[in-house]
Design a protein around this nucleic acid. Structure first.
Lengths: 226, 226
DNA sequence: CGCTCTATTGATAAACCTCAAATACAGTGG
DNA sequence: CCACTGTATTTGAGGTTTATCAATAGAGCG
């Protein structure tokens, strides 16, 4: 069995042996692209670590409109909150590409935290960062214009999933206009128009489900001043 | 000294004596209406419990536009996050009426958590509820129309600060149109127009900085369907 | 090559904001 | 009690932003 694990914040402080012991207790799941790991309100959802690939975390509102909270990649956790709460995690996780995760159920996770208190501390840190992140994005979506928000979305994705590319930095993720819209709180039409305009300005290059940011500085400038 | 403390989630599980010992270690602060307890990015901010009155938690964006995250009342905590993180809490807390808070610095709080592990567990629970709340509001602000969001804001405030009133439920809080706008992510003009319309429909009564919800059911209905 | 999914673009409408001006209200000091 | 002042609120007009709808083009795949 492949016991290699990516570096992850949650297990910082553990030795190699402790870590592989934990991994053995986990359930390894391989997801094809666009398959659902757990669904909004799924009571069985427990704690998952992404080993390879990437998950999209979303939420649907009553009318069925989707919002993307974040994309999480190798070494990142999701649904860790459920370990500490009895309610189901109100978020859906879906792979955007072939993805491998390791999942632990609540009892295992709680036992692990007792044995290695570092895990609990790390978990706390991760949750606090998430809260800060959502709060900041809440501020943005309340106060900023759509195009500013699109710019921020691209920059955020670029930082988390950026790859070197001859013309700039490529967002290494299958990313449709609809995805960007769901991530920015707008519609695919507005995204399309906005990206077209930026492409004319030379700030980005765009293709089918692909974006390359060619002038990050211009985007940053724009995202801050409008 | 007045050692009476409101029931608070954070100290659930502690005895009366343990609690009053803690209160004595805290610093009691009395705030006149509209005074700032701590400011966005203030490194000195530590953990505060509201004893009486109410605080408004806000954040300013780069252009100086304010967003209200939440109003917190007696028995509720704020800035608890700072206890566990080195960074400053990126939020401003301001009293909306005469307010009494008890504040503890980080070392005291950490010591207390060691002595009474219940506190750490309770704190965790509070933080998890907050994350869920912000995420849900993020979804709302991304997907819903302004008037739906205003309806949700009134309902939320009603549930947290509602008082019986001959005509319905009064929101017991000085609440200007601007406040509602900052809480809903819109402008005071739109709030004014919307409330006028609802008053004509008999859903609410409104006065200067005062709202009475006379038909909560209609508001709920509206907030869900548009 | 035809099928499906994604993206673009124009036209139109709706939602919402901004500005300006008028009005209502609460508190203060005479 | 009343005028005065500062703030809160309302409302209209006009404009901008953004969503919606519809039609077309393009890309990838078997």
């Amino acid at each position: 069995m492949d016991t290699s694990l990516p570096k992850s914040d949650i297990f910082k402080g553990l030795t190699r042996d402790q870590l592989s012991g934990l991994v053995e207790k986990g359930r390894r799941i391989i997801l094809k692209p666009k398959s659902v790991l757990f669904h909004q309100g799924d009571p069985a959802a427990s704690c998952f670590l992404v080993n390879r690939g990437r998950l999209k975390l979303t939420k649907l509102n009553e009318q069925g409109r989707e919002v993307i909270f974040r994309y999480i990649g190798a070494g990142e956790l999701t649904a860790a909150i459920t370990v500490l709460k009895r309610w189901a995690y109100p978020v859906t996780a879906e792979s955007v590409e072939e993805t491998v995760v390791v999942g632990w159920d609540k009892p295992t996770m709680i036992q692990a935290m007792h044995r290695y208190p570092d895990i609990a501390i790390n978990l706390m840190g991760i949750i606090l960062e998430r809260i800060d992140d959502v709060q900041h994005r809440y501020l943005e979506v309340c106060t900023e214009h759509v195009d500013q928000r699109i710019a921020r979305s691209l920059l955020r994705l670029m930082r988390r999933a950026g790859l070197k590319h001859p013309e700039g930095i490529q967002i290494n993720l299958p990313l449709s206009r609809q995805n960007i819209a769901d991530y920015s709180g707008t519609t695919l039409y507005t995204v399309s128009r906005t990206l077209s305009a930026w492409e004319k300005k030379g700030w980005i290059l765009s293709g089918r489900e692909q974006i390359v940011v060619t002038d990050p500085h211009a985007l940053v400038q724009f995202s801050e001043t409008g």
